[in-house]
């Protein structure tokens, strides 16, 4: 499967490439920080606010106007969260939902997306519209029919309704990936294809590696969606041993109502893995297509 162009992502090279908005001096570098910093502060406040509240006793939270810096700092909220909700167990359960969802997004959806982007077939446009239209019906009204369906299949009370449909891909990811595949220079695949590589090999060998940035994006979306999913686990799960993080959080908003410190500590714990994942995944956004001389 000869790729007659070098299309392997080359992160090191990519990083060294001049990028748009390239600065010409130290002044420009400083200038960029001057622009980026105040903005980022505005976007980070919720996190600061959340962490700050997670370190307060209720009597401090009751003050107003609220004080940003907890005094004293109440670390005890964090270990106490585990008394109310075994977040470590819920974390493991959540992974059972997250991993299939990522698989469905990265593999199943991208397969369909590639077909929509590249292959011609009768009825393709109509199928594409049907695909889009699955996103247009509010979940509130499909919830009961869907539940009845899973009840008939005897899947209620377990992870199956929360896993199997997601393995089959989702319209959102198919559409997103399709749009990205549309921008990949066609010559790359044609060459491989004509060299005798099968469609599938062309797809896995050439297209997917080229699509790394968007696959990183899709991974994050899929991760976040199932990480935060609440309604599905609420109605389908039936045993606290199966609970996921979003259900664990419920303990603080409801039965122990008003324990804002604990709620925020639990939320912080729930958010931290997502932030870390994003922090490390974002570098994959920069390993874009670095082939030379193909277009332009």
């Amino acid at each position: 499967m000869a790729t007659n162009t070098r299309v392997q992502p080359a992160p090191a090279v990519a990083a060294a490439q001049p990028r748009p908005l390239r600065g010409r001096s130290g002044f420009m570098a400083v200038f960029r920080h001057v622009i980026l910093l105040p903005g980022v502060v505005f976007f980070v406040i919720p996190l600061v606010f959340m962490v700050s509240t997670s370190l307060k006793a209720l009597r401090q939270i009751a003050l107003f106007p609220p004080e940003l810096i907890p005094n004293p700092v109440l670390w005890a909220n964090y270990p106490e969260v585990f008394h109310y909700a075994p977040m470590h167990l819920y974390f493991v359960n959540t992974l059972f939902l997250v991993l299939p969802a990522i698989f469905g997004a990265v593999f199943t959806s991208s397969l369909a997306a590639y077909a929509f982007a590249r292959l011609r077939a009768p009825g393709k446009n109509a199928i594409f519209i049907i695909l889009l239209s699955t996103m247009m019906v509010p979940a509130f009204v499909t919830m009961i029919p869907t539940y009845i369906l899973f009840a008939k299949l005897r899947w209620v009370g377990g992870f199956k309704p929360l896993v199997i449909p997601y393995l089959m891909g989702s319209a959102f990811f198919v559409f997103l990936l399709r749009q990205f595949f549309l921008t990949i220079p066609r010559e790359l695949e044609d060459a491989a294809f004509i060299d005798g590589s099968s469609r599938l090999r062309t797809f896995t060998g050439i297209v997917l590696p080229l699509a790394k940035p968007v696959l990183a994006t899709v991974t994050i979306f899929a991760f976040m969606a199932s990480w935060n999913e609440y309604m599905g686990p609420l109605i389908y799960l039936s045993n606290k041993k199966q609970y996921v993080l979003s259900l664990g959080l419920q303990v603080f908003t409801d039965a122990y109502g008003g324990e804002w410190g604990l709620l925020m500590a639990a939320s912080t714990m729930m958010v931290a893995p997502v932030i870390l994942l994003f922090f490390f995944a974002q570098k994959h956004f920069v390993t874009g297509i670095t082939m030379s001389g193909l277009k332009g």
Partner: peptide, 27 residues
């Protein structure tokens, strides 16, 4: 566009700008 530059600490900036989409709605 701003975040598509080569600047020291870009990983942190990108994460920062993304945070409002991560934090739970209650918070």
């Amino acid at each position: 566009l701003l975040l598509n530059q080569k600047v020291r600490g870009m990983a942190a900036y990108r994460t920062g700008y993304f945070i409002p989409s991560i934090v739970p709605a209650v918070a």
